[in-house]
Computed example of a mutant assay.
Amino acid sequence: MPQKDKGYVNPEISPRSERSKKHHQAKKNHRGCFFWGLLVTVIALIVGGKYAYAKYTNAKNAANTIFQSSNVKKARDVNSTLKDGHPVSVLLMGTDTGALGRDFKGRTDTIMIAVLNPNKKTMTVVSLPRDAKVEVSGYESKYPSKLNSAYFYGGSGTAVKTVQNYLNVPIDFYATINMGGLERLIDSVGGLDIKPLLTFTYDNQSFVKDEETHMDGARALAYVRMRYTDPQGDYGRQARQRQVLTQLAFKGSHLMSLINQKFLSTISKQMVTDLTFDDLLVLGSKYRVATHNMVTDHLAGQPNQENGESFEVPTTKERQRITNLLRKALDLNHAQTGDSGEWIDADD
């Protein structure tokens, strides 16, 4: 039986006019994502045999260092959800803080929702457009706003509430990394071997499509940051981000990387999450099987200018498609998608 998220949201919404568009078919992959790199790093260090106690202590210290509550009430009881082995969702955010010498609180250049379903042995990862037109939870007077401004206005908790309202999907946890941290994480595992998805030059770095390239942190950062000369715009950049984060997780899950204190130390300095050490232990014991298959997709919108700003505006039909995908992955009942911070009856 699907798990129902009782009490999760309320009134009717006014559907936006729909525009014709092409849907993007979900793709399957057999690796993890960056979040799993963090998870596997902590769990594998704990169960790593002869490395046991010292690495256990380091792992627990790292987990305690990166913990930061979202300071928002969860949409459902995550403790019982984890205990019973139900699917869980994590909002993954990459901020521009720390990148290219920046030292201010940034916006979220990368926004993804990951669902771990141990029963179906599937991880579903959906990218959301940073420029999606939304009403930011708690900052309704600033409407219209871009989705990536939610973190800037109120931090991770505001981003979580905004995404929940926008798609009518419960967000159980979040994990945030700054882009400067991404650069250092890649360097800490010795770089990545990537086959670029297209040929381009950006920030004095050149890439050739399908030509395997070894990328250190700075080169990889240039690869994932380029946006305007990609024929697919931000959607193309999202694909490159998923590619690099997936490869980082794959390499980070190898034992030689896991026992690298530099890698663990870098994670503890560049990430924050509201997953506790105990949460990670449960995920490691019950949810690791979810990495057997990975399904990726993205919410697609159409460009729209308003008050001199450029927004991405997905149709109601497209948002409903993504809501359906995520709720199905979470084993939840069908529900109408959200709209600009308004809640909907989950039983409709």
Rank of each mutant, 00 (worst) to 15 (best):
G155Q: 11
A222E: 10
H214W: 09
G181L: 05
I186A: 02
Y174Q: 05
N178Q: 09
N168Y: 06
N178M: 07
F200Q: 08
L197I: 11
Q205K: 08
L221F: 07
T176E: 13
D203P: 07
Y166G: 03
Y153C: 04
T176V: 14
A218M: 06
K209N: 15
E211M: 13
V208E: 15
N148I: 06
V208G: 11
G154N: 11
F152D: 13
P170A: 01
N178C: 06
I171T: 07
P196M: 03
D187K: 07
D203I: 00
H214R: 11
Y174K: 04
G154R: 04
E183Q: 14
Q164I: 04
Y151R: 11
E212V: 09
G154V: 12
G191Y: 01
L182A: 09
K195Y: 03
P144L: 00
S156T: 10
K142Y: 12
V160W: 00
A159D: 10
L197R: 14
P196F: 04
R219Y: 02
Y174P: 10
G154A: 01
I186E: 10
S156M: 14
T213W: 04
Y151S: 01
P170G: 00
S206F: 01
R219A: 13
D172G: 07
K146E: 02
G155E: 12
M215T: 00
M179Q: 02
D216R: 08
E211Q: 09
Y166V: 08
T158K: 10
L167C: 02
S206I: 04
L182S: 03
S188V: 10
A218S: 11
L192H: 03
G155K: 13
G154D: 04
E183A: 12
L197F: 12
A175P: 01
Y151A: 03
S206W: 05
D210G: 05
A220R: 02
D172K: 03
G155S: 13
D187C: 08
D203L: 14
V208Y: 15
Y166W: 14
N168F: 06
F200E: 11
S156G: 05
S206N: 14
F200N: 14
Y151N: 09
S206A: 15
D187S: 01
G181A: 09
D216I: 07
G181E: 04
L147N: 12
S188H: 10
Y151G: 05
V160I: 13
A218Y: 11
N178R: 02
I194S: 11
G157E: 03
E212T: 15
A222C: 14
Y143S: 12
D210P: 12
K209D: 12
F207P: 00
R184N: 15
A175V: 14
N168M: 01
Y202C: 01
K195F: 02
Q164G: 09
Y202T: 08
E212W: 03
V189G: 03
K161P: 06
G217F: 04
V169W: 11
L167F: 05
G191R: 03
N204A: 10
T158F: 12
L221C: 12
N165I: 03
E211P: 06
L198A: 13
V163C: 11
N168D: 06
I186R: 00
V189P: 04
A222D: 10
N168S: 14
P144Y: 08
A220F: 05
G180F: 11
T213E: 00
R184V: 10
L185S: 07
P144Q: 01
